[in-house]
Design a protein around this nucleic acid. Structure first.
Length: 591
RNA sequence: GGCUCCAUAGUUCAACUGAAUAGAACAUCAGAUUUCGGCUCUGAGGGUUGCAGGUUUGAGUCCUGCUGGAGUCACCA
């Protein structure tokens, strides 16, 4: 039982003993540093149950607690705040108890609990991944890891948007202008090569539009009638009819893109347990629509299209099947969700990592699935995140203002290199080891920069400040980790057994932060927020650096104190590593 | 226009879901190392939390209105 729970039951007990009143909850906060104490009971909310002077009530409760809780022997009252001083012995005992724990803060999954499927990435196969995908990937991966650490079983998945008119556009442009180019013949990554032809299509399309306008068409007409667009539309029909020439081209070019994506995913350090392809799922959902019609969840209009009326829930009417009987995006998503539960029978919920421009879509999707009566529909979560803006404004792929994912990772590693060459302690590292390290640091900077902000908020990505390595940054935390490892390497004595010492004030502060880690993991999971983990790690590291600067570790003369300080350093290092693993960030032994 | 989300130091972000004098980092200024890794640490200045009301013992947080910004309202995905 942790100390807060213990105090909570004692406060309740005390309230009953003093006033014969039962209270449901007790509100706590960490004691502000200008007052003496470690944990604070906020008395104001209790006034609802017992009218009176908050200071007096706090005094009474404080006296009750020091008599009945052996870990607490002093208290003070400031207005309605009861500041409790927890005995040092509690903290050193607590530290000794967690020191040997390997995955302190993580909870292993229970076999009887349902799994969660986390979807993220889900790119189109007509262009390379960019900065927006990076945020998506980092968030999805991290939330999946956090859910695992909080005790859930997790499947990571993505649905690859491998069909549709946009795919045909790059195929067509390659067919017309590609001269048989391949990734092998050009040395280009497959996704980059295909992306070039997507751009090429757009250029040709614009050219044709202008020609048509010059011949007297309106802009609107020109956009609809441009021959290259008509050709692409025909190609899509051919694909849907299974035309073998188109299918072969599609398989070949998508293969190039997958090879390219796999390299990017590997460099980014993300992975998936199961892949879904839109070409397999785009026809799903139609039979469910039929069932929904029978149940009265949907209704058919005169022209044959099928709709769901959500006006009672404050939303609109939403189409789920076109008048020609073909599926729309919503149909597909309904079908895919159901398919996933069929494929993985233990799935009890899903997380969709998709940008906030689709907030409405997911609101509707979840509502429809609930109406259809699936029990897992209550456990669906749209991990909605804000856009990534550049100082120059919005990223637009057609205008070439996107930040390419591969390029960005390379740039970050190069910045890391130039800083490390100046300041690093890398004697004895091979060139290969160094290059790996630069990647670790560069990625650490990038990932931390993106994950430390609340997913819901938009991010302004300034390439200049994202490569900052000081203050609240990934490399700052990695540096602290490397420094701790340096201490451990130099500690040539046995520090594996617990010792008993009087705590230094800074040591106590670190232990207090370590104590909250399990709760922070749970909180991050409950909020689907890697930012909570990032901010926690930074607080821990800042406190450790202050300790490091203020006390001598290996230079300490008292043997037990020296041992304890190495132990606390080690535990901080272990916790940094664990916390960063939840963000998908690696930590270096040296840097 | 309807609906949804956002607005906090010069800048980038926090604030445990309603509690003490709104906290960090960057930048600025002033300090610290015969010391375990100075990519560090200590300190200072910097705020009417977009504006105006309201609820509450207590509001950055909840409610209403307004201003500014974004998204969305396709038989697109």
């Amino acid at each position: 039982m942790n100390i807060q729970n213990l105090i909570e039951t004692k406060v309740k007990e005390g309230f009953l003993a003093l006033y014969e009143i039962e209270i449901p909850t007790v509100e706590f906060q960490a004691t502000r540093k200008e007052f003496e104490g470690d944990i604070t009971v906020v008395v104001f909310p209790l006034l609802r149950y017992k009218k009176g002077n908050p200071t007096q009530i706090a005094e009474d409760l404080g006296n009750y607690i020091i008599k009945n809780v052996k870990e607490i022997n002093r208290f003070n009252v400031v207005k309605g705040f009861l500041n409790l001083v927890i005995d040092d012995a509690f903290y050193s005992n607590f530290f000794n108890a967690i020191y040997q724990q390997n995955n302190y803060g993580f909870v292993s999954s229970k076999p009887e609990e349902k799994s969660i499927m986390v979807e993220y990435s889900s790119p189109n196969t007509n262009k390379p991944l960019h900065l927006g995908h990076i945020r998506n990937n980092l968030l999805g991966y991290s939330v999946a890891e956090i859910l695992k650490a909080s005790g859930k079983k997790v499947y990571k998945t993505q649905i690859i948007n491998d069909r549709g008119i946009h795919i045909c556009k790059s195929m067509l442009a390659w067919q017309k202008f590609g001269n048989g180019e391949t990734p092998a013949s050009t040395g280009l990554k497959g996704d980059k090569l295909v992306g070039n032809y997507y751009v090429k299509f757009d250029q040709e399309y614009k050219k044709e539009i202008n020609q048509l306008i010059a011949r007297g068409k309106t802009e609107e007409e020109a956009k609809k009638e441009a021959p290259i667009l008509l050709e692409a539309q025909q190609m899509l029909r051919n694909w849907e009819n299974g035309n073998s020439e188109v299918t072969q081209l599609w398989e070949k070019m998508n293969g190039w893109v997958y090879d390219g994506f796999n390299i990017t995913y590997k460099n980014l350090g993300v992975d998936f347990d199961k892949l879904y392809y839109e070409s397999d799922t785009y026809l799903l959902g139609k039979d469910v629509v039929a069932q929904g019609l029978e149940k009265g969840v949907f209704y058919r209009k005169e022209d044959g299209s099928v709709w769901c009326d959500l006006t009672d829930e404050g939303l609109d009417e939403k189409i789920v099947l076109r008048s020609d009987g073909t599926a729309v995006y919503m149909t597909q998503d309904i079908g895919t969700a159901i398919q996933r539960v069929k494929d993985f029978s233990d799935v009890g919920g899903m997380v969709y990592t998709v940008g906030n421009e689709q907030d409405y879509h997911f609101q509707v999707l979840f509502l429809i699935l609930k109406k259809l009566g699936f029990d897992w529909a209550k456990q669906l979560y749209h991990l909605s995140y804000g856009m990534v803006d550049l100082p120059s404004g919005k990223m637009k792929s057609r205008e070439g203002t996107v930040v390419d994912a591969d390029d960005l990772m390379i740039e970050m590693a190069e910045t890391a290199k130039s800083i490390s060459e100046e300041l690093g302690k890398l004697d004895g590292y091979t060139e290969e080891e160094k290059s790996e390290l630069y990647k670790t640091i560069g990625l650490g900077a990038l990932k931390y920069y993106i994950l430390k902000v609340d997913p819901k908020k938009r991010i302004l990505f300034d390439p200049k400040s994202s490569v900052d390595f000081q203050g609240n940054t990934g490399p700052f935390i990695q540096y602290t980790y490397a420094r701790i490892q340096s201490i451990i390497r130099k500690a040539d004595f046995d520090f594996s057994n617990p010792v008993s010492i009087d705590l230094h004030e800074k040591e106590k502060e670190i232990i207090k932060i370590l104590e909250t880690f399990p709760e922070v993991v749970q909180q991050a999971a409950a909020n689907y927020s890697p930012a909570i983990i990032a901010n926690y790690t930074y607080d821990l590291v800042k406190e450790f650096n202050s300790f490091y600067q203020n006390v001598s570790i290996l230079g300490e003369e008292n043997k037990d104190k020296k041992i304890f300080r190495v132990q606390i350093s080690k535990k901080v290092g272990d916790t940094i590593k664990l916390a960063f693993s939840l963000l998908g960030i690696e930590v270096p032994e040296r840097m």
